[in-house]
Design a binder for these strands. Structure first.
Length: 527
RNA sequence: GGCCCGGUGGUCAAGCGGUUAAGACACGGCCCUUUCAAGGCUGUAACACGGGUUCGAUUCCCGUCCGGGUCACCA
């Protein structure tokens, strides 16, 4: 049972240990990517272990949510909990199902005198806490405050006979006046006081605390690297002592930084309640591509990743050597701007088909009406998404699905609306005249060059410069330049000042739609 | 409050005793351009503070300040 694993030298075994609260957040994903890379690039194993020792927090169906959310973002496990049951031979992988294992070790520790039952009630515990507060001593159950640490066998037996509920505590041998140092995979050498807290190992219901459970599991499952948030740093002394008490070597601890956010000029931890962007659903709902989220998180995760990516665009992630010592140890601010920038690059590198499939997949789940409209004109949609794609300098207009839809929705009459104003340096009279003449001269058969020459001619006919340079040289001589004329056409056709190439969008719209919209533009200018 | 971790431009960050203190995002300017985007060039902007150690500190040590974490029969 639980033999050492036969893996190549240097292989790392990592695990993600979410508790099944049904809420999986960016921090989990951040850690999961690191765990995944560490394991897989070393030929190791990546495990999913469900840390369900707190039944109060458990939410129905949470395991499934965890697995599917992570799967969506490309995190796959080699071993561990699956929706129904387990995969792998170091299980079970749900801690509640491992109760007997923990209890066995707890018994062993009690036999050896390294742990003891404690019958303190909640009221007694809070009395201790208050007394400590009054005396300004450290809080906790330790040393002279640990009332039940030295109960005689008889006293224990009496209480047991009464059926008194009890927990099992570690009989700590540490002395906080002594310091020990430990190598953290991310932070280097850490110096901490020894633990002297008689921490709870087994709760009254016989289920272990996180502290006890993870030590046993990580040892038995032959975990080599424990990646976890820095909120665990302060409990590290317990954990080290528990490993030591059990006579086991501890894995390499790697404490990651917490994700922060800027709020009213102050940094603070991303909070589940206040920050929707902490939840993974936020990104999925908005339609950030999983590859973009991964790419972004990787840049935050490893300080040299971004540089590598710049040097190796399009290279497979396997080519990047991920290391814990390149992970940051100061609070990283979550930066949506940066995510968007990364996302633009990721989407620009994809084919129109890929973007199209992704967009439609998103729409089916989050915007069903729109998905029908787009499905009905899938060929056009593909052409729309192909505009400016590929080549040396692809356009980078697209960020996330909801935004993409916003960006292209003017193609669909169902969603077409005037979002931007006409340029105000073109008078309504000129605008109307320009649109009328444009309509009169419009020929869907014109190629891009012919079409553009016509626009230039149109500009000149109405007192606009054919080239911006001409206008710049001599602003008094013109009402504006051809760019202003284009802007008028663009607004009439797309309802906005910013769109992909005008000629191309007209080709996709088709002559009827083009004419109708120009006509509508003329009408709306009438009054 | 105790303990722990951290503090380089607005943000993310290289840097590990001697550097003109990288780079990316954001922001400004210019060029290109029928708009926007992209691209090219370019600009503004940083070592929290005070003491040491040292020939020399952003880098090492101490203190202060600031930020964060943690002090549960939650993880």
């Amino acid at each position: 049972m639980y033999p050492p694993r036969s893996l190549p030298a240097g292989a790392k075994v990592t695990r993600l240990g979410p508790s099944p609260t049904g809420f999986i957040h960016l921090g989990n994903l951040y850690g999961a990517f690191a765990d995944e890379r560490l394991a897989h690039q070393s030929g190791g194993v990546f495990i999913l272990r469900i840390e369900d020792t707190d039944n109060k927090r458990e939410v129905e169906g949470a395991v499934e949510t965890i697995i599917s959310s992570l799967d969506y973002f490309g995190v796959h496990f080699d071993e561990g909990a699956v929706v129904e049951g387990d995969k792998g031979s170091y299980g079970p992988y749900r801690q509640r199902q491992r109760a007997e294992i923990y209890q066995t070790f707890a018994k062993l520790l009690i036999q050896r005198g390294q742990a003891y039952p404690c019958f303190c009630t909640e009221a007694e515990l809070s009395e201790i806490h208050e007394a400590q507060a009054a005396l300004k001593e450290n809080f906790g159950y330790y040393g002279k405050w640990a009332k039940h640490r030295d109960l005689s066998l008889q006293e224990i037996r009496d209480r047991l006979d009464l059926g008194a509920p009890f927990v099992v505590r570690l009989r700590s041998q540490g002395d906080p006046a002594r310091y020990f140092s430990i190598e953290d995979g991310i932070r280097g050498t850490l110096s901490m006081p020894e633990n002297n807290q008689d921490v709870v190992l087994l709760k009254a219901d016989g289920i272990p605390t996180y502290h006890f459970a993870h030590v046993i599991d990580d040892h038995l499952m032959r975990i080599t690297h424990i990646l976890r948030g820095e909120e665990w740093l302060s409990t590290l002394p317990f954990h080290v002592e528990i490993f030591k008490t059990l006579g086991w070597e501890h894995p390499v601890f790697c404490h990651t930084t917490v994700l922060m956010k800027m709020d009213d000029g102050a940094k603070r931890k991303l909070s589940k309640r206040k920050d929707p962007e902490l939840g993974l659903d936020y990104y999925r709902g908005l339609g950030y591509h999983p590859a973009a989220v991964r790419e972004y998180l990787l840049t935050v995760l490893n300080s040299n990743y971004e540089e590598w990516r710049l040097a190796n665009p399009g290279a497979d992630i396997e080519g990047f050597r991920f290391t814990t010592d390149k992970m940051g140890s100061s609070g990283a601010l979550f930066d949506l701007d940066k995510l968007s920038d990364v996302s633009k690059d990721v989407l620009a590198a994809m084919t129109a088909e890929e973007v199209c499939d992704f967009l439609l997949g998103w729409a089916r789940a989050y915007k069903p009406e729109a998905s029908e409209v787009m499905d009905a004109r899938r060929d056009d949609l593909l052409k729309i998404l192909a505009i400016g794609r590929g080549g040396e300098n692809p356009r980078k207009d697209l960020i996330y699905a909801a935004q993409i839809f916003e960006f292209i929705q003017f193609f669909f009459d169902e969603y077409f609306r005037m979002e931007d104003e006409y340029p105000d340096n073109v008078s309504p009279e000129d605008r109307k005249a320009l649109l009328k003449d444009y309509l009169a001269g419009y020929d869907a058969g014109d190629d891009a060059q012919v079409w553009f020459d016509k626009v230039r001619q149109l500009a000149m006919d109405h007192g606009f410069a054919a080239k911006p340079k001409d206008y710049k040289k001599n602003p008094e001589a013109f009402k504006g330049h051809v760019g202003d004329v284009s802007a008028v056409l663009r607004v009439a056709l797309s309802g906005r000042r910013n769109s992909p190439d005008l000629w191309e969008i007209q080709q996709i719209m088709g002559p009827d739609r083009v004419k109708a919209r120009i006509q509508a533009g003329i009408q709306s200018t009438a009054q």
